[in-house]
């Protein structure tokens, strides 16, 4: 029982390190899109690991922890995708080192489609 708790605590610690890396990335990255990338990825794995560790230590709430993990796995990519899409739509400044932008080319080709897209879904 005690070993299980220590294993859980170490997994939680690993998760918190990933969360910290996500925050450092948030500060170091040059533009919105790279920040979304780093933030989403690192924080997703970080939260999953921390919650998993807590679930190992406190088995009463393991079911709810499991639901929470599934929920975060589904919603986190969706929210980051929507934010990135909105950022590109309103034309947030991209970093100078951006090498290629096929999406802008695509949007310029069909401007009328662009305005209606949100309603179409």
């Amino acid at each position: 029982m005690e070993t299980l708790k220590i294993i859980g605590a170490f997994i939680t610690l690993a998760g918190s390190v990933f969360l910290l890396l996500g925050s450092i990335g948030l500060i170091r990255m040059p533009d919105v899109f790279t920040r979304i990338q780093v933030g989403t990825k690192a924080s997703t794995l970080g939260t999953i690991l921390s919650l998993f560790g807590i679930g190992l230590m406190f088995t009463e709430i393991a079911g709810k922890i499991f639901l929470l993990i599934i929920f975060i796995l589904i919603t986190n990519p969706v929210s980051s995708h929507m934010l990135a899409r909105a950022a590109h739509y309103i034309g947030v400044k991209k970093a100078d080192i951006t090498v290629v932008d096929k999406l802008s080319e695509f949007r310029e080709k069909q401007p009328e489609n662009n305005a209606q897209k949100p309603e179409a879904e």
């Binding site: 969360l19 996500g22 920040r35």
Partner: peptide, 19 residues
Amino acid sequence: GSLVDRVISFDIMTIISIS
């Protein structure tokens, strides 16, 4: 730098709070 930046950091703060 922009509004989107703020939303991202807020999102990440929420996720850390969940942990």
